[in-house]
Design a protein around this nucleic acid. Structure first.
Lengths: 127, 127
DNA sequence: ATACTTAGTAACAAAAAGGATAGTATGAAA
DNA sequence: TTTCATACTATCCTTTTTGTTACTAAGTAT
C-alpha cells in the first residue's frame, strides 16, 4: 500500500486498508520474522526461502513507508542493514495472531510459525 | 482460495491460508454484508457499488466452496438466490473485526462498516 | 407478441502481483 | 590483482486478479 491511504486512496472499509498494509504473499511472513528480533536483509531472505531480492526489497520498502518497519543501514563494507518492527509495527502482531489462529482452525493443523518467542497473543491482548 | 489448502496448496503459515480465504478486494465486504442478514445476488451487488456480476459470482462461488457462505436458489422466475453465512462463516467475523479495528487506527477515522447490527465483536468473543 | 425481471455467463482487455536472473558498488582480505 | 561479501537495482517475463460490456434463460405481466 505504501501509505497511499493517507495520500489519495479511499477505502470502502478499514479492512481493505489493513489488508493493503499487511496483506499479500510476503508481508505477513516478514512481519512475523521481525516480531522478536532485528534481522538483516540476508537473514530475512534466508528465513523466507524462495523470495527474490527484488520482492524482499519492495515489501520492506512498503512496510517502511507505512511505518511498520525500521530500516537501519550501517556505513560499512560489505554493507549491513538491519530491519526491525517499529512500535507501531508491533501493534499488528495481535492481528496477525488472529489471522493465524483462524487459519489453524481452517486448516486443522498447528501453526508453523514459531510461537515460542515472546510475542503477544490474541488471548493476551483481548480483554 | 477455493479450498485448495485442503487439496494441494501448502502454506508457509496459516495466515496465508486465512488471507486466501477472506482476503482480496471483495471478500471482506461480502462477508461483512452478510454478517447479519441473508442477501440476494442483486442486493449484494447494490450494497457494494462497483462490483461486476462476474466478480461477485466468482467471489461468492469461492466463499461457498470454502464453506463460509451458503447459497440457496429458489426455482422461481425470475430467479431468486439467497446468500448467507454458514456457522463456520460466522467464525471469521471476529477476525474481520480485528482487521477493521486496526485499519481504523491506521487510518485515524471511523469504520465505514455499519456496526449497529448485531454482530460479535473482537471484545465480545475474546475471553 | 413483447417487455420485464433476476442471476448469472461469455469474451475480451487491462492492471497488478510475483518471479528469474544478471549486474553494481565498495573496501578488505588473499 | 583477483576474489569475496552484502544489499541491493535493472530487465524482462509470466501469472493472477480485476474490470467492461454484452448476452442468455424463462416464466409472468401487459
Amino acid at each position: 500500500m505504501v501509505n497511499e491511504a493517507k495520500n489519495n486512496k479511499h477505502y470502502h472499509c478499514p479492512v481493505e486498508a489493513t489488508l493493503d498494509v499487511i496483506g499479500g504473499k510476503w508481508k505477513p511472513l516478514i512481519l512475523w520474522q521481525l516480531r522478536a528480533e532485528k534481522l538483516r536483509f540476508s537473514g530475512l531472505q534466508q528465513s523466507m526461502q524462495g523470495i527474490s531480492p527484488k520482492m524482499l526489497t519492495k515489501q520492506l520498502r512498503e512496510l517502511e513507508a507505512d511505518g511498520l518497519v525500521l530500516r537501519e543501514a550501517y556505513p560499512e563494507i560489505p554493507p549491513r542493514v538491519e530491519y526491525s518492527l517499529t512500535e507501531f509495527g508491533k501493534t499488528v502482531l495481535p492481528v496477525l495472531d488472529a489471522l493465524c489462529e483462524w487459519g489453524n482452525g481452517y486448516l486443522g493443523r498447528e501453526c508453523v510459525l514459531d510461537k515460542n518467542k515472546d510475542v503477544k497473543t490474541a488471548d493476551s491482548i483481548s480483554q
